[in-house]
Amino acid sequence: MRWTLPNILTTLRLLAAPGVAVMFLYFTRPYADWFALLLFVGAALTDWIDGYLARSWKQETKLGAMLDPIADKAMVVIALMVIVGFSSMSPWLVLPATVILFREVFVSGLREYLGDTAGTLKVTKLAKWKTTAQMIAIATLFSQGVFEHYFGMSTMGMDPDLVRDIVEGREDDLHGLRWKLEGMIWTWHAGLWLLWLAAALTLVSGVDYFRKSIPYLKDKTP
């Protein structure tokens, strides 16, 4: 095994995946949301950097080829688990998250069954786009948690009628309630739409991968 810089970055991304969940064990919100967001975005950036370096420096290795998809899937699966868990199991999140998780488990099982043959099924641009959409959607949803908790902290102990008057512009907004609420709403809707887009791309790429693997699944006729 060669421990090149791209491989080290991939390994760090793999280790960062459970770190996203650990943030919510050791920190209160919204600090946990901030740390999880920064850790996730930083790790997601290494997904592009390590691939770019491996190609440009001609340091593509079997270790990197093995670790890269595992790190991507671990990041997405764990981050989705955290987001869905803290969203009170919203069905608008659960359904696309289920599609994404099902596809990842299905394709991983299919790759394991195909063994060495799986290496001949190249990663398509569609698969790369679905990973990008997943990363952006998850980062946006983590941002929504930041806005939500800053809004909650700013309105803690305030009379609900006063909050309503401030948000609707009848009272001075001394605590920035309006932009916090707008940020919370926009990141929620943007993250949700992006997650559904990611789920659609994930489903299509899964079907494409299964279609390409069909010739290797057929029984040999005697």
Rank of each mutant, 00 (worst) to 15 (best):
S154P: 00
G51Y: 03
L203F: 11
G191M: 03
D219Y: 15
M135E: 13
Y26L: 09
Y31I: 08
L110P: 03
P18F: 12
L217R: 12
H189S: 11
V146D: 08
P6T: 12
L5W: 10
W186P: 13
A97C: 03
T202V: 05
T11K: 15
G169T: 01
G152Q: 15
A198D: 01
M135G: 08
F151I: 02
E182V: 09
A71G: 12
I78N: 13
F142K: 11
G183W: 03
M81F: 04
S88N: 13
D33C: 12
T4P: 06
I166G: 02
G115H: 10
D50H: 10
F35H: 14
T155R: 07
A54L: 07
Q134R: 02
G109W: 14
V146G: 07
N7V: 08
F86L: 06
T28Q: 15
F210W: 14
K62L: 07
R29H: 03
A71R: 04
W92K: 11
N7A: 05
R211P: 10
D72C: 00
T117Q: 09
R29M: 14
M156F: 14
V77H: 10
W3T: 04
R2L: 03
T124S: 15
F86P: 00
W196M: 02
W34D: 15
G145Y: 03
F35T: 04
S56N: 15
S56P: 04
T140G: 07
L67R: 02
A199H: 01
M158R: 08
A17N: 11
G157P: 10
A44C: 00
F86V: 13
F210Y: 15
F151A: 06
W196S: 04
L67C: 09
D68P: 11
T132C: 12
M66I: 04
Y31S: 06
P6A: 15
T4L: 08
L93H: 06
V105T: 01
A139T: 09
L12N: 05
D50N: 06
A17S: 01
E168F: 00
L177A: 04
G42S: 12
M135I: 13
L14D: 00
P69E: 01
W188T: 09
I136F: 11
P18R: 05
T140H: 10
Y52K: 04
F24I: 10
G19D: 00
G206V: 01
T120L: 04
K130H: 02
L174S: 00
W193H: 01
L25D: 14
A97F: 11
G19I: 01
M153H: 12
D208H: 08
V41I: 13
L14S: 09
V207I: 14
K218H: 07
M135C: 08
L80R: 11
P69G: 03
A74L: 11
T10V: 02
K130L: 04
T61M: 04
I138E: 07
A190V: 13
K122M: 06
D116W: 06
V41N: 12
V107D: 15
T202Q: 10
T98S: 11
M75A: 10
I136K: 13
V82I: 12
F86G: 07
K130E: 00
V107M: 13
I83P: 09
A32Q: 04
I78Y: 12
R29Q: 11
